[in-house]
Design a protein around this nucleic acid. Structure first.
Lengths: 200, 200
DNA sequence: TTAAAATAATAAACAATGTTAATTATTTTT
DNA sequence: AAAAATAATTAACATTGTTTATTATTTTAA
């Protein structure tokens, strides 16, 4: 019987990745350490270095998983609705809800200071374009009949990306505004404002 | 001769504060440590604890200085212009320029994860309202003649606050977009979009 | 099947960090 | 000038990421 090294290694990596995901979703980046991950995975902290270059590599691998999870959640919001203004708001709300429920994941996506290598990583661009992918269809539904659609789309999606990220940053990291309901209300209002170029 | 304890203590605190400011402006938060501050101040790291509760207190004290510095810079931009759209853009540009020149200060203002006490600190609110103070006059000049001025002002200033912060976050922390000129161009374009409610 | 080789897991160690407690140096007061 | 108070520093501890040695295990070869 020849042992399946590939499978074994895959499993080991899985244990560490799962542990990392759980900690990030639960206690957040602050609680993440080589030792905390290893303990949850059931191995010594030194074992991690046999499967990953360092803690950062492990963190990077989680981003894709989280992105999928978030996308699924957003896609489950407003399924019965027509693409457009109202559905966009429902989807933005789901997006925001994900990142307020898991502030550690928000931190990981948008806040964590990476080294220069990390920022040049393709992941950085994928994150940058993440909201475009999620909200593109609804925006396109609003601008489809207009001339100069592409430019307007870029404007709107850009504004959405920046202002939603900004709001989440203030809410998650600075507790501004202090109340969640108020935060959501402002967020939806701002979402509407971002659509202005579609009605010009 | 009775020694002026007050003055002496004030000076000591000044040495540490200056050292902290210099490091934050130069190498950024990552390079800031009790030891690096103390070395630059010319004292042992333990001495810091005789004048400040901890490193966080020292950091907080710098925020106000930086805010003043930034405000001065912004106020020096477009002094000969009329309040309004064009001056706003010049001022936003100065604001952005400050926080890209000193990414460590941006981190300190908007990114650094504070403990709950820190986020409930009055400073958190001051930071939140900082851009409103800087850009309020120009926005008011645009909306002054409209009905429902206050509401529109809030909308515009909110959108400005969030989208400028979001853009800076992407640029400073994720190198998106990769080129500074492109970044500025997008930022100014987005600034204009934020003003849409004034022209409705 | 058992000895040798390869591999995997871990423990030990190091450097850097924030912080506190103990100690030394300095200044002030009596 | 000695005693008391204060200031500054050193020593120490706990926690972090990471690397280097050791130990345990598994695979291979005789």
């Amino acid at each position: 019987m020849t042992p399946n090294k590939e499978l074994q290694e895959q499993r080991m990596r899985g244990y560490f990745k799962d542990a990392t995901r759980e900690i990030l979703k639960g206690e957040g980046l602050k609680a993440l350490s080589v030792r905390s991950v290893a303990e949850r995975a059931g191995y010594s902290f030194a074992t991690m270095y046999n499967y990953f270059r360092d803690l950062n590599e492990l963190i990077f691998l989680c981003v894709n998983d989280f992105m999928e999870e978030c996308e699924t959640l957003v896609n489950e919001a407003g399924t019965e609705m027509e693409p457009g203004r109202d559905r966009l708001k429902v989807r933005v709300k789901a997006y925001i809800s994900y990142f307020t429920q898991y502030p550690g994941i928000f931190e990981l996506f948008f806040v964590e200071k990476m080294n220069d290598i990390g920022s040049k990583h393709p992941t950085a661009r994928t994150i940058y374009e993440f909201s475009d992918r999620l909200f593109g269809e609804d925006v396109a539904a609003l601008t489809g009949k207009l001339p100069d659609t592409e430019k307007i789309n870029r404007d709107i999606l850009g504004n959405l990306r920046h202002s939603v990220t900004g709001m989440l940053l203030f809410y998650n990291n600075r507790l501004q505004p202090g109340d969640y309901r108020e935060f959501i209300a402002i967020a939806l209002r701002q979402t509407e404002l971002c659509l202005a170029p579609a009605y010009a």
